[in-house]
Design a protein around this nucleic acid. Structure first.
Length: 155
DNA sequence: GCCAACGTTGGC
DNA sequence: GCCAACGTTGGC
């Protein structure tokens, strides 16, 4: 059982979009970074915890709690020549990019990036390191517990 | 829109 | 294999 933070642009897929999806589950598509891909392919297990993070928006932060709901499988968007995630070097026989399914579990208090930076327990988070841009990053159990406690706090 | 930081590409 | 140029990310 591991924990992860996964970034999504809410204009594209927000946490509410996942909550509204059938089974509260969506395919995590569009990862085009090898390190992030390798986390999905090699390290993620069904049931791992996910911090669903909203990036590139007015108030970036953790929007909800989710869970890994499938093993890795080829990301369909790499084969769509009309789409923005098309990769001409990927083939059906040798896919380059993968997806996992993500299921929304719990929506509580929104934890902003600014609030995260103010929490000493989170100072070592990969997300908060200078220059860090990884769209999928590991989270320790200590970081996870602190964030879960915040998310479950009433305002 | 700016720009720092990072990843990828491609010439050599 | 080096590294400059370019493209992307993502906060502000």
């Amino acid at each position: 059982m591991r924990y992860w933070l996964m970034k999504s642009e809410p204009d594209e897929v927000s946490f509410d979009d996942v909550l509204a999806a059938p089974g509260q589950t969506v395919a995590w598509f569009g990862v085009r970074n090898y390190q992030a891909r390798n986390f999905m392919r090699d390290a993620m297990q069904i049931g791992d915890g996910i911090l669903f993070y909203h990036s590139s928006c007015a108030v970036p932060g953790v929007a909800g709690i989710a869970e890994v709901a499938s093993g890795p499988y080829p990301d369909a968007t790499q084969f769509d020549s009309a789409g923005k995630y098309f990769d001409p070097k990927a083939t059906q026989a040798q896919p380059r990019w993968i997806s996992v399914d993500v299921q929304a579990k719990e929506k509580g208090r929104y934890l902003t990036l600014a609030e995260m930076r103010a929490m000493p327990v989170l100072e070592d988070m990969v997300l908060l390191q200078k220059g860090s841009r990884l769209s999928i990053s590991p989270v320790t159990s200590g970081q996870w517990n602190a964030i879960l406690e915040f998310v479950r706090t009433k305002d």
